[in-house]
Structure formats: C-alpha cells, structure tokens
Design a protein around this nucleic acid. Sequence first.
DNA 1: TTGTAGGCGTTATCAC
DNA 2: GTGATAACGCCTACAA
Lengths: 321, 321
Amino acid sequence: MEKKLTITDIANIAQVAKSTVSRYLNGGPVSTKTREKIDKVVIENNYQPNTFAQSLKQKVNHTVGVIVPRLDSTAQVEMLRGLDAANKNDTFLIVNTYQSIERELAAIEKLRTQNVGGLIVLTANLNDELRAALADFDAPVVIQGQEEPSFHRVVMNDLASGTIVGEFAASLSPKNVLLLKIDETKDWAIGHDRFLNIQKRLSSTHITVVNSNFSIAEAKVVAQKAMQSQTFDLIIGATDRITIGALQAGLAMHQNAQYIGFGKSDLSTTVTPNLTSFEYDFYQTGKQIYKLFRMVRDNKPLNKIRIVIDGQLTIRDSTKK
Amino acid sequence: MEKKLTITDIANIAQVAKSTVSRYLNGGPVSTKTREKIDKVVIENNYQPNTFAQSLKQKVNHTVGVIVPRLDSTAQVEMLRGLDAANKNDTFLIVNTYQSIERELAAIEKLRTQNVGGLIVLTANLNDELRAALADFDAPVVIQGQEEPSFHRVVMNDLASGTIVGEFAASLSPKNVLLLKIDETKDWAIGHDRFLNIQKRLSSTHITVVNSNFSIAEAKVVAQKAMQSQTFDLIIGATDRITIGALQAGLAMHQNAQYIGFGKSDLSTTVTPNLTSFEYDFYQTGKQIYKLFRMVRDNKPLNKIRIVIDGQLTIRDSTKK
DNA sequence: TTGTAGGCGTTATCAC
DNA sequence: GTGATAACGCCTACAA
C-alpha cells in the first residue's frame, strides 16, 4: 500500500532516462542490457503504469459504457457475457438503469462526463429525450433491441419470429388463445412486432390480449384475472418469465392449456412442463453487438448499420397435449 | 462529435486565464462578471472536463472494482442494487467472473492496472492464490460472503440460519430428509455453515446429503437421482434455485415432499407451491457493503472489520401439508 | 479577484 | 539505442 512508483522513479533506480523506460514499456527498441536492468526494477517494485496519465495522452478511451435496463434477466446477462467474450481490450462500465428513463438519462450524462469511449445500449427503449441525448453523444453509440434508424443497431427479427410462432400456434388449432404481451409504448419490438404476425396467423381464432410487465409475479396476476372469465387452451407470453407466470396461474386455476414463450432462459427447460419457446441466442447477439461497436468506432461509417438476429422455435412438452 | 474543447479553449473564448476557468469549475472565488462570461461559453459549447486529467492530479480514484461471480443470481443483482443505492460518488466497475478462479485472478490483475480506488468482492470464495492477490492489492478491499479474518467483510449469519431452519425442520417431524447442498470446498459459508446446524437439529432423523451446483437444472438431475432409491418427505436446498430444481424433480418423480429453500428470489413466491425460504435481505446487504467500503477507505482502520447480516425464515405453502 | 508558472505521469519528437 | 524536452488537460500555489 506504499505510494505508487512512477516511470521516473524506476528510471532513476535503473539509471536510465524515463523515455527509455517508456519505450521499454511500449515495446520500442531497447538494448538487451538496458532491458534487463529495467526488467529487474519493474518486477521488483511491481510497477503499474498510471492509466490516467496514459489515457490523457492516448486520447482514445477504451472504457465503453454499457447501459442495461435490468440485470435480473437471462437475455441481458447473456448479452453481457457475449460482450465479455468478444471483448478485445476495452473495459465495460455496466450501468443498470432499473428500467427507469430518468436513470437512463442520468446514466448517459454521467458516462459523458466520464468521457467513455463509446456507448452500448442494451434493449434500448428510446423516447425523444433519450434519442436526443444519444444522438448528441460525442462517442460511437450502438444500440440493441429496437428499430431505431438513426442509430447503429442490432435488432432481433421479431416480425419473422411472430410469423413462425403464429404459424405453429395455428397448427395447434386452438379454440381460445390468451396473448400476454408488453405495452407496446414500453417496448415496441416485443409489444408490437413480436405479436403482430402471431395475431395475423390466428386471425380466425378467438384471441384475448392482455398486457403484463416482465415479472413472473405480475404475469401470474394478470393471467389469473383473465382466466376468471374464460378458459384458454393456448397461451403465448412475450417472454419465458411471463409465460411461466401464466403457467402458474393456469395451474392455480386448473386450466389445462398449452404454452409458448420467448427467450432462452434456463427456466424453460426446468419448469414442468418444459416450455416450448422461440429462442434467440443472446450470447451470440452480445458478440455481434461488440463487433458492430468496434466496426463503428474504427471505421466511422457514414450510414447507420443494422444487424438482424434470427431465432428459432424449440418445441417442448408445453405444447404437446 | 467535434473534437473536445479544453479548459484552455474556453479560457481563450471567454478572454480569461485558464486558471480562472479552473477555479470557476471548482467553485473557487470568481467575480460575478467573469462567472457569467464563462457560464455562457461553457454552456454554449457543452464543455466537459477531461476526467483523466482531473484524476491525474487528484490521485484519489473514485472508480471501485466490483467482482461478482455471476450475474444470473437474485442475490448478486440485489447486492449490486444496494451498492448503487448507497453509492455517493463512486463509479462501479462490475466484473463478472463466471465463477472461475482464473477469471477472478485475471480480473483483480486487470483492475489493479486500471488503478481502481478499491475493490469489492461479492460472494468471495477465496483460495490461497486469490487471498494473496487481494492482500497485495494497493487499495482498500472489502469482501462479502465468506468468513475471511484477514479482510474487511460482510458475512451472512449462516450458522444461526441453519439453527433456525433446523429447528423448524425438526418441528415438521420428517421421516426421511434430503439435503441438497454445495460442495463445501467451493463455498464454505453455504456448503458448510448453512447446513451444520440443520444436520445437528435433525440428528435423530434419516438424512441423505447430496451436492449440487447453483443451477436449477443440475439440482433437478441430482435430486432425481437421489429419488430413484428413496422417497423423501422433506427436502432442504442450499438456495431457492436448488430447491426449485428439487421441487421439479419431486413433481416428475411423483414424490410428495415438503420443501425449504434459502434466498430471496422472486421465484419463491411464484413457484407452485410457494416456497418456504430462509431469506436474507441482499439489497440492504449491498448497502452495508458500500458503507463498510467507504468507512475503510476513509478511516483506514487498523483492524479488520466484520459485519454480520441476519435473515429470517418465511413460511409458505411448500411446508404446509 | 485574477493571471503566471509550474507539475501530475505518460508518450512522442527529436537530436545525439 | 538513448536521453532531453515538450506536450496532453487540469489543478494549485503564488504573485500581481
């Protein structure tokens, strides 16, 4: 816990100029003899360069802010894992905004004052204010989750997913369907796109649509209420968690429905019955996001880039009667 | 996205010396007239001071590294939320180590080179190497989760919890008990302390002890295997997730047991039946950790400080026959 | 109250 | 290959 040594200190100890030490540290040309001298001193004193001084010079900041709406979500955590896996030499500053717009704005502002070298916004759900704040940001920005033409983005192909799920759902010939979705003003991709084609494919079936939030508990309450007046034979939830809430409601209300979820949580295979679910690979998505970010930072493309991630339907017990 | 303005730039524009601008920025004495001049320029140009240059002088680094073994855990995320809530003006650098010792060592090393102003290690599970690395760290370190006398720490009172759970379990007069725990070499607090007094209180009952990891899936597999040769009427899992895995195994194997978990996940109240669980308030724990960290950083106490968090048993349907 | 002149630790440029 | 020396952007005596 002694005070940190500087490049000057070890230069003095090793009897060389500090510029030589700097060269040594950065792999510049150094004679074997002096290299050994410096080696010794550096190791003995466990020298660590001062990052601030380095960054002060280098100007390129390798800290990138990652804004995530919540951490208690498999999708988010998997994307973070993907970012980590693809990461070359950046440091991620993860900021949890707890699904609050105000916190998100504050986070952007704080990250700005911290001069992060870029911004990755997961499950971006932008209003005009956020859009403006991000557009103003003086470093590359990549967002994920929503179709925002004015930003570089990685989006899930929710329209196509809906078609696939809708077709599969139709093939089950349900009589009375419950759709548990998210308010589309809160999450357009999930609340609107994901369900658009489901509803189209089931247009000849009786459908009840109810909004929930992302928690199991809320989904259970909402589903239970819907079940008081009707009996459903197919329930599609906007996420696995939501579907699980519905499943528990179904159990409590003794309704014997089939269930379909979205996501790739470990929950789907551990709940009984195992959940049929439309799955996105969020780990790979995270990698893609990082790659896109690097691309944007390095090449500063003129046009906004859009990457689309497809998923696939995995059929499990919850849709086998 | 223009190049950043410096304090010198705005000094030039405002026709004052840069030291005056610096004083202005730091609340030093500035006349109303010049203040207004500078105000104008700063706002118009949306000036942001360079954190690196600032930190280079200030020496006190307000970036705190937070090492967390996993993010897909209610306990961890709640502690992070507590840290956020208690946070005064630090920036947390969250590093997920994915439960890997190597990654944890690497994380410590990386955080060291980043000169973080401190370290908070959640659910610290230390081996000698980690212990050494942390002891060497040239900034305050606070750990959580394990009884490590050589570190400032916040620990859960797992011994007392075990007593409470054990007594309650005994009151259910079970005939055959399954304990699903964690390998004690992997997590002493949970694997050993948490179960020590449970086993004591149930010493006159037939007990089977099996190890699992923290995932629902693994717990289910392990429990199912145990159930092949025996029928249990009480199952106690080391965490809620583990208990839920067991519960699903029980369902699959048509065993009608009672269940007790540990933790405070939203799962316990959404699963059917609702889980009786010994609950710790990890959000408050997170706050405590931050307070302890601040205390340590500011006062540099000579002795290691230990804070103990108690929990409470919440009885729900899973132990009501 | 203001401005001048260092200095924080590092890297980059240039002579040597 | 090496070593002065000048930046980087900010802060802080100190002098004016």
